[in-house]
Deep mutational scan, measured.
Amino acid sequence: KRPMNAFMVWAKDERRKILQAFPDMHNSNISKILGSRWKSMSNQEKQPYYEEQARLSKIHLEKYPNYK
Rank of each mutant, 00 (worst) to 15 (best):
K1D: 13
K1W: 09
R2A: 09
R2Y: 14
R2C: 09
P3R: 12
P3C: 02
P3I: 04
M4Y: 06
M4V: 10
M4G: 06
N5E: 12
N5W: 02
N5V: 03
N5A: 02
A6L: 00
A6N: 02
A6P: 05
F7C: 01
F7T: 02
F7W: 02
M8N: 14
M8P: 02
V9H: 02
W10H: 03
W10D: 02
W10N: 03
A11K: 00
A11C: 08
A11M: 04
K12N: 10
K12S: 10
K12A: 11
E14N: 06
E14K: 11
E14S: 05
E14D: 02
E14W: 14
E14C: 11
R15S: 06
R15I: 14
R15W: 15
R16P: 12
R16F: 08
K17A: 07
I18Y: 05
I18W: 00
I18V: 06
L19C: 08
L19M: 11
L19S: 10
Q20H: 08
Q20C: 07
Q20D: 12
Q20R: 09
A21F: 07
F22A: 08
F22G: 05
F22H: 15
F22W: 11
P23C: 01
P23V: 02
P23E: 05
P23Q: 02
P23W: 00
D24F: 06
D24Y: 08
M25E: 03
M25L: 07
H26C: 14
H26P: 15
H26S: 15
N27G: 08
N27A: 13
N27V: 12
N27L: 11
S28A: 13
S28R: 09
S28G: 10
N29Y: 09
N29R: 12
N29T: 14
I30K: 02
I30A: 00
I30E: 00
S31Y: 11
I33M: 07
I33P: 00
I33G: 01
I33S: 02
I33L: 12
I33A: 03
L34R: 00
L34A: 00
L34T: 00
L34E: 00
G35M: 12
G35L: 05
G35Y: 13
G35A: 15
G35V: 12
W38R: 05
W38F: 04
K39A: 10
K39S: 07
K39E: 03
K39P: 09
K39H: 03
K39V: 04
S40Q: 10
M41D: 02
M41T: 01
M41I: 03
M41Q: 02
M41A: 03
S42R: 03
S42Q: 05
S42E: 04
S42G: 06
N43S: 12
N43Q: 13
N43I: 09
N43H: 09
N43E: 15
N43C: 08
N43V: 13
Q44D: 14
Q44H: 09
Q44T: 11
Q44G: 08
Q44R: 09
E45Q: 07
E45N: 01
E45A: 06
E45R: 01
K46Q: 01
K46Y: 00
K46R: 06
K46C: 02
K46M: 00
Q47C: 03
P48N: 04
P48S: 05
Y49W: 08
Y49Q: 12
Y49I: 03
Y49C: 03
Y50R: 06
Y50S: 03
Y50M: 07
E51C: 03
E51N: 07
E51W: 04
E51T: 04
E51G: 04
E52M: 08
E52V: 05
E52D: 05
A54V: 08
R55V: 06
R55G: 04
R55C: 04
R55I: 04
R55Y: 05
L56Q: 10
S57P: 04
K58T: 12
K58R: 10
K58P: 08
K58D: 14
I59D: 13
I59M: 14
I59F: 09
I59R: 10
I59T: 13
I59W: 09
I59C: 13
I59A: 14
H60N: 14
H60W: 10
H60G: 10
H60P: 10
L61V: 11
L61R: 13
L61D: 15
L61P: 12
E62P: 05
E62S: 10
K63E: 15
K63L: 08
K63H: 11
K63D: 13
K63V: 07
Y64I: 14
Y64V: 14
P65W: 04
P65Y: 09
P65V: 10
P65D: 15
P65S: 13
N66Q: 07
N66F: 07
N66A: 09
Y67K: 11
Y67V: 15
Y67L: 11
K68W: 11
K68A: 12
